[in-house]
Design a binder for these strands. Sequence first.
DNA 1: GTCTATAATTAGATAGAC
DNA 2: GTCTATCTAATTATAGAC
Lengths: 199, 199
Amino acid sequence: MVSRVEQSEETRGKIVAAAVAAFSTLGFHGASTREIAARAGINQGLITYHFRSKELLWRAAVEKIFASLRTALVPLPTSPASDPREQARESIRRYVRFAAAHPELFRLMVEEGKSGDRRMQWLVDTYLRPFYEGFKEQLAESLSEPEQSLEPHAFYALAGAVSLMFAVEPECRRLTGLNPKRKQVVEQHADYVARLFVP
Amino acid sequence: MVSRVEQSEETRGKIVAAAVAAFSTLGFHGASTREIAARAGINQGLITYHFRSKELLWRAAVEKIFASLRTALVPLPTSPASDPREQARESIRRYVRFAAAHPELFRLMVEEGKSGDRRMQWLVDTYLRPFYEGFKEQLAESLSEPEQSLEPHAFYALAGAVSLMFAVEPECRRLTGLNPKRKQVVEQHADYVARLFVP
DNA sequence: GTCTATAATTAGATAGAC
DNA sequence: GTCTATCTAATTATAGAC
């Protein structure tokens, strides 16, 4: 940590991490650049220096979110003995664990998906479409679903069933008394949803 | 439409309708009072006159959303012959049709559920809790589920599976090519989710 | 690369005329 | 009850010192 490029990367990383958290809970308009700077422990002017604009910082935050998704989707060494339905269930359980650890992805999907503006178009074309194509492939091989017209329904039903509880964690705690952050609760949800979609 | 109180109610109604739409797509911070006033075709100063503050206007918008939910939840004359599982499926189908016609409810749940601030607490205590209690009753009688610990999981899985596709309608159209507004698509989702939760 | 200071907009809320 | 005009505060983005 001596050179300026290392220092730059360090600062950029702190800003993006703060931006992911702030955008995730406060939304794009609710998270001010001053608030993000304060969370990152740096000055507000530095955000413009490193990212030029709030929207470009937001894009960097989105990139970070999808980077952790890619990490989570790295295929596991499949035990070749287990049957395809059990493999499908395990994929869903892993998806639930990811959604619990990273509620940002679902919040982003809902926040941006509501309107047809520029950010939504960029998000779909850049990150969401490849992810959706991967989902369709996996669906085709593991569930052997001939009805292609059901793919969007399955995609959104699964994403919603998996993620909502963790995306609204503060609300869930107040409404049901259940803390979605607890490991036991995550596993219960993983099992519930896995059996729901693959009985 | 002559007296001042009638005029007042008319104006309030227009403002609240515009607020529901604006908050729903732009979020609380993204929707400015000037934008809402423009949509309602009235002056920005009038919002303060009728609602005192943006937050109180937001509460009026939430009240309107839950009023339409109450309307949709009015029990139908049950054909006593049909079996309870088919009745449960029909309840889910009605829920899907409501979510398609009023994506505001789900968007509100996610937008406010992310943080633990004052608006979320008010929303849960005032409107969400009675709704959740009603869900638990219906779950207990129609699915005869003994496991009470699964109630939160079922609630959030169902809400997410039912509503997400319609809440992110612009995104869904761009990502999948499917228009969730079309009646045929709504019915397909209704049937898909109903069979998913009540096989 | 980082900070302080500030410009330019835009926000929610208020005052007063009609 | 409604509108125009305005106040105050907060926002993003910029300029310049270090």
